[in-house]
Lab assay of single mutants.
Amino acid sequence: YQDQEQRILKFLEELGEGKATTAHDLSGKLGTPKKEINRVLYSLAKKGKLQKEAGTPPLWKIAVS
């Protein structure tokens, strides 16, 4: 689980600052079920590491501290 968090954070960091992506996109790029990706995304957002942008589907990006 920790491993997934690292992979997602790394992927988003590599996208570049301010760039956002969807759970669907992450799921495809990382070869992980979207349900699992979503769980990790919401967990990271709760920890303040990610920012969720409203929309359908929601967009995710690295939180700027």
Rank of each mutant, 00 (worst) to 15 (best):
residue 13 E to M: 08
residue 17 E to Q: 11
residue 24 H to I: 07
residue 56 T to E: 11
residue 19 K to Y: 09
residue 37 I to A: 03
residue 35 K to E: 09
residue 61 K to P: 01
residue 19 K to M: 14
residue 56 T to G: 04
residue 60 W to D: 02
residue 49 K to W: 10
residue 58 P to W: 02
residue 41 L to G: 01
residue 59 L to R: 14
residue 16 G to E: 11
residue 59 L to H: 14
residue 59 L to C: 09
residue 3 D to N: 12
residue 3 D to A: 06
residue 14 E to L: 08
residue 55 G to N: 06
residue 62 I to Q: 04
residue 43 S to M: 13
residue 28 G to M: 10
residue 28 G to C: 15
residue 61 K to F: 03
residue 58 P to H: 04
residue 61 K to Q: 07
residue 62 I to N: 04
residue 37 I to L: 09
residue 20 A to R: 10
residue 62 I to S: 06
residue 12 L to S: 00
residue 45 A to C: 13
residue 17 E to C: 10
residue 51 Q to L: 13
residue 56 T to D: 08
residue 42 Y to E: 13
residue 18 G to M: 05
residue 31 G to K: 14
residue 24 H to N: 07
residue 46 K to S: 09
residue 7 R to V: 08
residue 32 T to W: 13
residue 7 R to G: 06
residue 37 I to S: 01
residue 57 P to Q: 05
residue 18 G to S: 09
residue 63 A to Y: 07
residue 39 R to L: 07
residue 32 T to P: 03
residue 60 W to K: 01
residue 39 R to E: 08
residue 37 I to F: 01
residue 15 L to H: 07
residue 13 E to D: 09
residue 45 A to L: 15
residue 1 Y to A: 06
residue 61 K to S: 13
residue 29 K to C: 11
residue 4 Q to I: 15
residue 36 E to V: 15
residue 51 Q to G: 03
residue 38 N to P: 00
residue 47 K to T: 10
residue 6 Q to C: 03
residue 10 K to Y: 04
residue 26 L to K: 00
residue 39 R to D: 07
residue 61 K to L: 02
residue 12 L to D: 00
residue 14 E to T: 10
residue 3 D to R: 06
residue 10 K to M: 07
residue 37 I to D: 01
residue 61 K to N: 04
residue 30 L to A: 03
residue 28 G to A: 08
residue 10 K to S: 12
residue 17 E to Y: 05
residue 58 P to L: 04
residue 37 I to M: 11
residue 29 K to D: 04
residue 40 V to L: 15
residue 27 S to W: 02
residue 11 F to Y: 12
residue 22 T to I: 01
residue 56 T to M: 10
residue 20 A to L: 07
residue 52 K to D: 02
residue 35 K to D: 08
residue 42 Y to A: 12
residue 38 N to W: 03
residue 62 I to R: 09
residue 5 E to L: 02
residue 23 A to I: 04
residue 10 K to I: 05
residue 41 L to M: 03
residue 34 K to A: 09
residue 52 K to E: 03
residue 32 T to A: 13
residue 15 L to V: 07
residue 36 E to G: 04
residue 21 T to R: 04
residue 50 L to M: 04
residue 52 K to Q: 09
residue 52 K to S: 06
residue 19 K to Q: 13
residue 34 K to D: 07
residue 47 K to L: 07
residue 53 E to Y: 07
residue 47 K to N: 10
residue 44 L to H: 00
residue 23 A to H: 02
residue 31 G to R: 12
residue 6 Q to T: 12
residue 49 K to S: 08
residue 53 E to I: 12
residue 1 Y to E: 06
residue 17 E to T: 10
residue 23 A to V: 07
residue 16 G to R: 02
residue 57 P to Y: 03
residue 5 E to W: 02
residue 18 G to Q: 07
residue 53 E to D: 12
residue 53 E to W: 04
residue 26 L to I: 12
residue 60 W to C: 01
residue 11 F to I: 13
residue 15 L to N: 04
residue 59 L to Q: 09
residue 52 K to W: 05
residue 18 G to I: 03
residue 29 K to I: 09
residue 23 A to F: 00
residue 56 T to H: 15
residue 20 A to H: 12
residue 7 R to M: 09
residue 5 E to A: 09
residue 11 F to D: 03
residue 61 K to W: 02
residue 14 E to S: 12
residue 17 E to A: 15
residue 4 Q to T: 13
residue 49 K to V: 13
residue 42 Y to V: 09
residue 22 T to Y: 02
residue 31 G to H: 15
residue 29 K to Y: 12
residue 21 T to S: 08
residue 48 G to C: 03
residue 30 L to H: 02
residue 31 G to T: 06
residue 31 G to P: 02
residue 22 T to M: 02
residue 61 K to H: 07
residue 48 G to Q: 06
residue 1 Y to W: 06
residue 25 D to C: 10
residue 6 Q to H: 08
residue 37 I to E: 01
residue 57 P to E: 08
residue 24 H to Y: 08
residue 10 K to N: 11
residue 60 W to V: 01
residue 44 L to S: 01
residue 46 K to F: 04
residue 63 A to R: 12
residue 38 N to G: 05
residue 62 I to V: 13
residue 21 T to A: 12
residue 4 Q to N: 10
residue 18 G to C: 06
residue 65 S to I: 03
residue 65 S to C: 15
residue 46 K to H: 08
residue 28 G to I: 14
residue 59 L to S: 14
residue 54 A to L: 11
residue 26 L to C: 03
residue 29 K to H: 10
residue 40 V to R: 11
residue 54 A to I: 12
residue 51 Q to E: 15
residue 2 Q to L: 12
residue 39 R to H: 14
residue 12 L to Y: 04
residue 18 G to D: 13
residue 61 K to I: 00
residue 31 G to N: 13
residue 7 R to N: 08
residue 26 L to F: 01
residue 9 L to G: 01
residue 53 E to P: 03
residue 16 G to Q: 06
residue 15 L to R: 09
residue 35 K to W: 07
residue 6 Q to W: 07
